[in-house]
Write a protein that binds this DNA or RNA. Structure first.
Length: 252
DNA sequence: ATGTCCGTAACCTACGGA
């Protein structure tokens, strides 16, 4: 099974590239984030025409997540308990419980949105309280946290910034500590498996990026291969995030 | 290293958010 996660930064603006990418990469299950549209605005017909079932939640503004699957899709949850924003969608896809998450950005450490981000993480962690560790599960998406100093281009540039603070990292770590594996992408042309580069200042071309998107997999998922699809960040009209593509096998 | 891009609301440009 091939799975992928991608923050598309508007599924409307990204539609031609998304459809091309689905056809060339042929993932079985896809988690999308930051669709920036509502139910009516999601390009369901275009995606279904490529053989995918679609689950999407969004209110049309700065959030929205989806799960696409061509190996069956049964919706499990559309809302993270206690949180109203559409940043969480869960579906069972061909034996794999698939969670698409778009963790709040946090904005700045003195902003209420930062506390909201930590609360959101806490709520996400609590969903694992009832989770069977033996069930094949992936939680993937934009976590808006760089797990280690090496996951940003220069940690000195992040003094006082969100995405690298100990509380944020502890929140991400608590998910992993439950028993999930941080699926590591193989090195590409560059050693650092960044998934996000700011649009500004030629950051992508200088490879000044951040690893803030993750695939977290439960132990019964066997990973065959994983890579950051940098090609999707190149050319005309890319998202500011690149997808992570993972080939895996599930227990029979 | 705040230099771009996105959607919105309202217009032919400014703004919030990332």
């Amino acid at each position: 099974m091939r799975i992928a996660t991608w923050n598309v930064n508007s599924v409307g603006a990204r539609l031609p590239r998304l459809l091309d990418w689905l056809q060339t990469r042929e993932p079985d299950v896809v988690a999308l984030q930051e669709t920036k549209t509502n139910e009516a605005g999601f390009p369901t017909a275009e995606v279904e025409a490529l053989g995918y079932s679609v689950m999407h939640v969004g209110d049309g503004r700065w959030n929205g997540v989806a799960v696409l699957s061509r190996v069956g899709l049964e919706a499990v949850s559309r809302q993270l308990p206690g949180m109203t924003e559409p940043r969480y969608a869960v579906a069972d896809c061909g034996g794999l419980r698939t969670v698409s998450v778009y963790v709040p950005n946090g904005r700045s450490v003195d902003d209420p949105h930062y506390a909201y981000k930590l609360d959101w993480f806490d709520a996400l962690r609590h969903t694992l309280d009832d989770q069977d560790p033996a069930q094949p599960l992936v939680i993937m998406g934009d976590f808006n946290v760089a797990r280690n100093d090496a996951d940003v281009w220069d940690i000195r540039s992040f003094a006082g910034s969100t995405h690298v603070t100990p509380p944020e990292r502890a929140a991400l770590e608590s998910l992993i500590d439950w028993g999930l594996v941080d699926v590591t992408a193989r090195p590409g042309k560059n050693d650092r498996p960044f998934t996000y580069w700011d649009y500004r200042a030629g950051m992508f071309h200088k490879d000044l990026g951040m690893r803030i998107d993750y695939v977290l997999a439960s132990p019964s998922v066997t990973v065959q291969d994983a890579y950051v699809d940098r090609e999707a960040r190149k050319g005309t009209g890319p998202s500011d995030h690149a997808p992570i593509v993972v080939d895996l096998t599930l227990p029979s």
